[in-house]
């Protein structure tokens, strides 16, 4: 019973946090410099792991599906399979799971440490709103950078698939690329961008909430960090199911 009540209270607190972010998002001071700094730290700083994740995911996808496609004599659609899988599902989900691990945990740890060392109280004492100064820039940064990183992941993944198809299945690059182009439709791309935008918001809000609700000193910071990764990863996968259903119904048709 306590678990249910605690869960309801947490949902209320997260809703309140979202409301406070939205209410103050266009109210000065806008902290544009801080937003750009967070875009650099959270977004550009994650580029390497996203490049590696995307490349090897695309390559392994081409590798694993190549033989099966060959059995049915449709190896020529390998490019389409890789590109569709990446744009619709693997690109957004893997990119954002990586971000949840790298960035969500970092946000929770940073804000949690600031809270337990009274830095957030000091900020309030100096007249700054911690929500505007700490939470809003991180949310804006992740909501904008997660789709950008996903696009990069999709592109690098398709390239990884191409290299695997050429190297291990002897496929012609022109066949692979012309097949991949079929997958790149306007609606596919739109659907593939909606997901990371929502996931980016989830990662940032959970990271900030867990950080700002830290209790129990340095041990509590560790606990918040772990919870941030676990909760945002589960939410990404759950929200992905809902969004996939909606995107399939509304954008991509039956």
């Amino acid at each position: 019973m306590n678990l249910i009540i605690r869960g309801i209270i947490q949902v209320q607190e997260i809703t309140l946090l979202i409301w406070r972010v939205l209410r103050g998002i266009f109210r000065p001071p806008l902290y544009l410099r801080e937003i750009i700094r967070q875009m650099d730290v959270l977004g550009f700083g994650s580029l390497t792991i996203i490049l590696l994740t995307g490349f090897f995911t695309g390559a392994v996808l081409a590798l694993n599906t190549g033989n099966t496609l060959q059995k049915f004599g449709v190896q020529s659609v390998s490019g389409q399979l890789v590109a569709t899988s990446l744009i619709r599902e693997l690109g957004p989900v893997l990119t954002c799971l990586m971000l949840a691990g790298r960035v969500g945990s970092g946000i929770a740890a940073e804000l949690g440490s600031m809270l337990v060392s009274e830095q957030i109280d000091a900020m309030r004492a100096l007249g700054s709103d911690p929500i505007k100064k700490l939470v809003t820039p991180r949310i804006v940064a992740l909501v904008t950078m997660a789709p950008a990183l996903t696009v990069i992941c999709d592109m690098v993944g398709t390239l990884g698939g191409l290299l695997a198809a050429i190297s291990f299945q002897g496929q012609a690059s022109s066949v692979y690329m012309s097949s991949a182009k079929v997958a790149v439709t306007y609606n596919e791309i739109l659907g593939g961008l909606i997901k990371p935008t929502v996931f980016g918001f989830v990662i940032a809000i959970i990271g900030c909430y867990k950080g700002l609700s830290t209790t129990g000193g340095t041990v509590g910071v560790g606990r918040s960090t772990t919870q941030s990764v676990v909760v945002s990863s589960i939410l990404i996968i759950a929200v992905d199911f809902v969004l996939s259903k909606l995107i399939l119904s509304l954008l991509l048709g039956p």
């Binding site: 009274e118 109280d121 000091a122 004492a125 100096l126 007249g127 700054s128």
Partner: peptide, 23 residues
Amino acid sequence: ENDLLALRRETMGMVFQENALFT
């Protein structure tokens, strides 16, 4: 809260018991 923040910004300062510098 916004008026309170403005009041603190303009007229108040506080030194904390623990080291609360921005790391």
